[in-house]
Design a protein around this nucleic acid. Sequence first.
DNA 1: GAGCATCGGGG
DNA 2: GTGTACGATGCTC
Length: 799
Amino acid sequence: MAKKEFYPMDFDYDNEGNILIYGKTTSNEKILIIDDSVKPYFYVLENGNKAKEIENIRIKEENKIYRVSKTEIVNKRYYDKEIKAVKVYVDHHRDINHIRKKLRDSDLAETDIRYIKRYLTEKRIDPLVLSEAEGEIIEDTDEGISIQGEVKQKSSEFLKNPRILAFDIEVYGDFSGHQKHKQDPIIMISFKGEEFNKVITWKKINAPYVETVKNEKELLEKFVEVIQKYNPDYITGYFTDGFDFPYIKLRADELDVKMDLGIDKSLLIIKKEKTGFTSAKIKGIPHLDMYRFVSRIMGGGLRIDTFNLNTVAREILGEKKLDFDLGDISEVWDSGDIKELAEYNLRDSDLAYKLCRELLPNLNELSKLVGMPIYDVCRATYGSLVENYLIKKAKDYNEIIPNRPKYDAITERRNETYEGAFVMEPKPGFYDKIVVYDFKSIYPSIIVTKNISPSSLNSSKGNKTPEVEIKGKKRHYYFDTKETFIPKVVKELILKRNDIKKQLKEKKDSALSGRSYALKTVANAIYGYLGFFGSRYHSMECAASITAWARYYIQDVIKKAQKEKFEVIYSDTDSIAIFMNKKTKKESLDFLEKVNKNLPGIMELELENFYDYGLFVSKKGEESSGAKKKYALIDSKGEIKIIGFETVRGDWSLIARETQKKVIEIILKENSFEKALNYARKVIKELNEGRVDMKKLIIRNQLKMDLEKYKQIGPHVAVAKQMRERGVNIREGSMINYIVCSGKGLIRDRSKIPKEARDYDKDYYINNQVIPCVEKIFEIKRYTKQDLLSKEQSKLGDF
DNA sequence: GAGCATCGGGG
DNA sequence: GTGTACGATGCTC
């Protein structure tokens, strides 16, 4: 018998029903544990009378016999009710799907828990954290050690300084027209690890980190060699699930190169999902495609509307890709001068590497918290995070987890609607002295405080909700006050996070902030899970009651504020912005305290910030009503918060976006509409005089379908046609850049490829780009379009 | 405005 | 098959 401490990194199971755990020992060896100690099972919701009958189930299918190995009558809880159930064991996990056919669907539970999840839950093992294997050593070589035995969790500590290896490929071709993977070769691959920079290519260049090989085939062979030699704990990249790995696989198959990257020398696996998306898996080495994690899970918290590497790296790391036009990649390659390309290639790996290092604490903590392998967490949806967490917690509470809904139920649920959050229409204006409050974790707090869950929903007793609207019908619901599974779980998450936040106040720590992030993410996702059509605990009544309570409490604060003569400017979901007028900071803090004294349970209103100035504009086309979710604020440190303005959107010309941003800045920082007006006039004047840099006039639009299919010819479609005439390969998805030039007739007839544009249509850029971006702001002080167009300088102007 | 289709990331 | 994306956006009718 041997004992080994190790970190479990990746999980799998074999045909015999053994769980396979790939990990790394505390002495940095690779380890494989083969564990057959967890027997698969499911539940039949039945009081035990039929246990014997169930035990005798035999199913013969295609020469195979599936049988129940054992049944037990157990005391469990189901939707918080004490019940007796039959626990049905089978020999192999896959047998469950055969056995269940003999039983009524409505009597089944936990037939759809994945085997790895069952194993982790039964053993109370969290992925990635220090564990101990005990058993027989069945292999011990330089490559690593294999143990057949059992696993126990030892602590909550993660592998320190994991070896991360990032990579990125470059492909020859013009990227227009349809994909031609069979012909376009991979010309370059870069790697980034710890103190490890490498570019492999098959053309000679002089750079310290470049290795030149003979051809593409050798490049791919080298790719495998580098990975094997570096021996990473994680492989990472950006969109490597969707592009790099699938493309490598394709070329490797074509050139007869074995992608035996797995720890057991197994081949790279490319899984195709029904929707066309792919995932790349390597046995034993978790592959983390940072794009998938960022776009699905992290994305919500970022203020970006596209998840390309450049934008994401800028937002998370404050770093950018190198400026290199990939449209020229084939010319550059053919010219032989590929140094710049190599640098570009290496930078992309570098960014992916840094993103992985930066976000690994979040991935680690989520993986540990919800009990899901890190590979899956990286590709998870909020729904699966919550589901995995609830399955894990169900063990502690002796709860049986209901099965997932069937297709018909999902279809029906998809059509249900309920009333969401309260958003107040702001009174357009420029305000000074603003205080913003927000409810701390409003939805989780309501779930806990009002004990909202499917099992506490009662038709006549308990806490009565405010009026709830589902599918247009209004009524009240009641929730029992006796604490149930879901509110308990949410409360635990909130309390744990409060504790972590206290610790974080004392010292900054990336592992702790990862933990706080994980707790917050799962807690916040539970409300959505109750309303989600694919949920095991779907309840429109619950989801709608939660939003109804949130509307009630936020409106209650608004009323109380108004009663105390505070002027409420704006409110959205959980936050409320107040114009303090003659009130002092102290008075607004006193008000906050008073509100909190009257809030029930764990509900809490917090001070978000004091702001010196704020800008709220009116809706398009209307002057009197304010635009929701569109405002700008500045705090005493001069930090500006711009929400919802076009400033950040890519489909406006730079001149329009820049002008808007600058106008907002001048107003907030210098508190002067006059100055801002003069700035806008200056821009308009420059436009009029033809002095604006053509680069700032480029408008970008994407072709959303094949060029031939368009019936409505917009400017970008017209320009796309011109580009095609010039021999540029245009296809759906192509980004079309254009400039609207001067002349008569339709806009589309005057739109040109930027390189060919000699002048621009002044009126168009003034009236259709710049003015629409700023006129709503100036409307606040009753300045009109005419004021913007007037050539006269404003009295106080200093331009 | 419903209903349907496609996109996203990458090169 | 161990279970499978999904939410947003834009086009057509």
